[in-house]
């Protein structure tokens, strides 16, 4: 722990366009990334620093992308960032009203074997639309930390920052088994032994 305070850990914020990555990023790092209400506001990456529990994180706000097969130059930036930072933790940001789209890119990221954490953002909008998201259930199924946030009001940001260090490499096989109702809790513990992420 003592020497890990010296090393910065890179955290890439990845997700669909217009889910509030930049707003979350500003909240966590106190930066001034431009935030708007249209897809494609962020077309280049922005870096910021977050210090949480004596660990310094370099948070990178990455342009939004619908998948990891880029359609345009902004999405190419996102895919390139993932490729160039193989040791990074990936913070996957969801729009709580469009969980399915977020999950799609989450699975793509998880397939790459990078440690992940999920932020289910825009919980206020989901609440207004009478959509409920079982974040605890999602966390159990995915086997990575899942935190509910509302970037505009700042709700859940504290917890999200605290949970970054618990980011996990997701095991797709185990996710499938859990979806089929199998209990993989024991396997999870054994799978956790070597990762050193905790």
């Amino acid at each position: 722990m003592a020497d890990s305070t010296k090393n910065k850990i890179t955290v890439l914020m990845v997700g669909n366009p217009n889910v509030g990555k930049s707003a979350l990023f500003n909240r966590m790092t106190g930066s001034n990334a431009v935030v708007s209400n249209y897809p494609g506001t962020t077309v280049d990456f922005t870096k910021g620093t977050l210090i949480e529990g004596r660990q310094e994180y370099e948070i990178i706000d990455v342009p939004g992308t619908y998948s990891l097969e880029p359609r345009d130059a902004a999405e190419e930036v996102a895919v390139r960032m993932l490729r160039d930072c193989p040791d990074a933790i990936v913070m996957i940001v969801f729009d709580a009203t469009k969980i399915d789209r977020g999950l799609y890119i989450a699975l793509e990221v998880m397939e790459r074997g990078m440690p992940c954490i999920v932020a289910v953002n825009m919980m206020d909008a989901a609440h207004d639309k009478k959509i409920t998201v079982d974040t605890a259930g999602l966390q159990r199924l995915l086997g990575v930390p899942v935190v509910a946030t509302t970037a505009t009001s700042g709700e859940g940001i504290r917890e999200l920052a605290e949970q970054i260090r618990k980011a996990q490499v997701a095991d797709l096989d185990a996710i499938l088994k859990r979806l089929n109702g199998e209990n993989t809790a024991k396997k999870q513990v054994s799978g956790c032994g070597g990762c050193g992420g905790c």
Binding site: D100, K130, T132, V133, D134, L138
Partner: peptide, 19 residues
């Protein structure tokens, strides 16, 4: 395959109320 997994995940975790 990915979309099928997404589908199953959302069915277990997301509920839609009357809007």
């Amino acid at each position: 395959a990915r979309w099928e997994m997404v589908d199953r995940l959302t069915r277990q975790t997301v509920t839609y109320g009357t809007y």
